[in-house]
Amino acid sequence: MTTITVYGSTGMVGSDITREAAARGHRVIGVSRQESPDNRVDGVTYVTGNLQDTADVVAKAADTDVLVISVPGPRDGSSVQPVIDAHAALVPALAGQDVRVFVVGGAGATLTADGTMLVDTPDFPEAYAAEARSFAEVLDLYRAAPASLDWTMLAPAPEIGPGAPAESYVLGDDHPAGDSVTTGTFARAALDEIETPAHRRTRFTVADA
């Protein structure tokens, strides 16, 4: 049984990852700002925590096999820099630790066929631009991480929303694997990767088939 600790366990994506991990019989620890969130999943142990508290994240990582980070930057116009800074501090702090870091990325930082980031294409929504660029910076941090850091980033298709898993899914590398994906499909792909690692120290993408 794998111990999986999920930061952002009550968010749109993180809650489905938490639910999928628990359904598969893993020991799951959900981390959020509230110890008793409204959308609790049966069988999950909930604790409080903040991704920006590096020492606490490292302490929690010492008691887990996989550390899932599903914490996007804010979309309310406030700075996304605290999330970037949190990852910048965690990369060296977790290097060499016996834990796998699984980061939920963003579609806006994936690439079109000609290598342009989606966030830099003409029709990309401005409201999501800062968040998308923050994911690009976070990815750069992990790509430059010491070889002793075991990490993976999974990014969704350009359109992601709540929903049950599709019958099947498709994977891509740095390019979108398709147009849309449900959070249920995303969670299933995340757990498949956690259980059977195939994308170590790289980013990949998922879409509904």
Rank of each mutant, 00 (worst) to 15 (best):
1 M>Q: 04
1 M>A: 05
5 T>E: 06
5 T>C: 00
6 V>S: 10
11 G>T: 01
16 D>A: 10
17 I>K: 00
18 T>G: 01
19 R>I: 07
26 H>M: 15
34 Q>F: 06
38 D>R: 15
39 N>T: 02
43 G>E: 08
45 T>Q: 14
48 T>A: 13
51 L>T: 12
54 T>H: 07
57 V>M: 13
60 K>W: 01
64 T>K: 12
64 T>A: 14
71 V>T: 07
72 P>M: 01
73 G>K: 04
76 D>S: 08
76 D>E: 07
77 G>H: 07
77 G>P: 04
84 I>W: 05
88 A>Q: 11
90 L>Q: 08
92 P>I: 08
92 P>F: 05
95 A>K: 02
95 A>W: 05
96 G>K: 12
103 V>E: 05
109 A>L: 01
111 L>G: 00
112 T>M: 00
112 T>W: 02
114 D>L: 13
115 G>L: 10
116 T>A: 08
118 L>P: 04
122 P>Q: 05
124 F>Q: 06
124 F>T: 03
134 S>W: 09
137 E>S: 12
141 L>D: 03
141 L>G: 10
147 A>R: 09
147 A>L: 12
158 P>K: 12
161 G>H: 14
164 A>G: 15
175 H>G: 15
185 T>Y: 07
189 A>R: 00
192 D>G: 11
198 A>I: 05
202 T>Y: 10
